[in-house]
């Protein structure tokens, strides 16, 4: 689907933040065209071999490694002027990383931005998948620190390449088994390894394992960019993604056993927040758009107050 035909594009929707002027000193979306072509070719190969890590010549970006330089490069290669961009960091639109990347693309690409998951055409994310189901035509871009799921088991790239080519993933199951031997259960709670279409084992980036089921059969295109490690990989829509497990220790998507204290949701992934010096705490949705949408609909949690009418 081209950007023109996407229902969400081209119209100013509620909750959208107006773009600031484009910074004309830079090419559209910051990167030069040769770099974008190189990233675009890698993205196409990534989609053709789902879950396989395509090497790419990652550039220095005007932000430090660890701040999403891989995701930023993938987003820059994908953006069109018609896009509506949403950026989240651990589910939140208003944290430093999200705000700075959003501003970066407002300045260099002049794109419209939003905090609403349903309105966005491109969503760049650090460590979460939005609670709201994504739709066809949307693109979810992940920031990835360590793309190689086997890296902590085998430090040599030549060896991990060989292991992927031979589908030699026994070591990964040994790691999960050691979890069970030590803790009685699979204790890995984020960056939980998955197998894509029965072939490549892939690191889903450090999303909580709660989000793993959303990787599979998702209607959106999912693109992964690791800047420092110079790897791009991808999941086309409707791709089978299975979290590794054992017959007697099946995968479980876990979350804090509470309801959101602001919106009362029992199903959303929660952040724990310390609220005083006496050990008081509250649990709130990590997805700020999901939480505020629910509160606007009149849902109230344990510590929440009915939301006053927002102008």
């Amino acid at each position: 689907m081209s950007a023109q035909t996407h229902p969400a594009s081209g119209q100013i929707a509620q909750g959208q933040i107006a773009p600031i002027h484009t910074d004309q000193a830079y090419n559209f979306a910051y990167l030069d065209e040769e770099t974008k072509r190189m990233i675009r070719r890698a993205l196409l190969k990534g989609l053709a071999v789902p879950g396989y890590q395509v090497p790419f010549a990652s550039r220095e970006m005007p932000m430090p490694y660890g701040w999403g330089t891989g995701g930023v490069q993938v987003t820059a290669a994908c953006l069109t002027p018609d896009d509506v961009l949403k950026v989240i960091d651990q589910g939140a639109d208003d944290t430093t990383n999200a705000v700075s990347i959003r501003k970066f693309f407002q300045r260099t690409a002049g794109v419209a931005t939003t905090e609403q998951t349903t309105v966005a055409t491109v969503i760049q994310t650090r460590h979460r998948i939005p609670e709201t189901d994504l739709s066809e035509g949307q693109i979810l871009v992940y920031q990835v620190p360590i793309p190689e799921p086997l890296r902590f088991l085998e430090p040599r790239e030549t060896e991990t390449r060989k292991m992927h080519s031979l589908e030699e993933y026994g070591l990964m199951h040994v790691r999960l088994y050691e979890d069970i031997a030590r803790h009685g259960q699979i204790a890995t709670s984020y960056a939980y390894p998955v197998k894509v279409e029965g072939r490549y084992v892939m690191d889903p980036s450090p999303i909580p394992k709660f989000d793993n089921p959303k990787l599979s059969q998702n209607a959106a295109i999912q693109l992964f960019g690791a800047g420092r490690e110079q790897r791009i990989y991808a999941l086309p829509p409707y791709t089978d993604v299975v979290s590794l497990d054992f017959e007697d220790h099946p995968f479980q998507a876990s979350k804090a056993d509470h309801a959101c204290d602001l919106c009362g949701s029992n199903t959303a992934y929660l952040d724990e927040v310390i609220i005083d010096d006496a050990g008081g705490r509250m649990f709130v949705c990590s997805d700020t758009d999901y939480c505020s949408t629910r509160r606007a609909q009149g849902h109230v949690g344990r510590l929440g107050t009915a939301q006053e009418h927002v102008a």
């Binding site: 974008k36 675009r40 989609l47 053709a48 069109t80 295109i221 829509p237």
Partner: peptide, 13 residues
Amino acid sequence: AAHAFRAALQAMA
């Protein structure tokens, strides 16, 4: 090129 690539990306996806 950005519009063209989006079409190519959607096609390959």
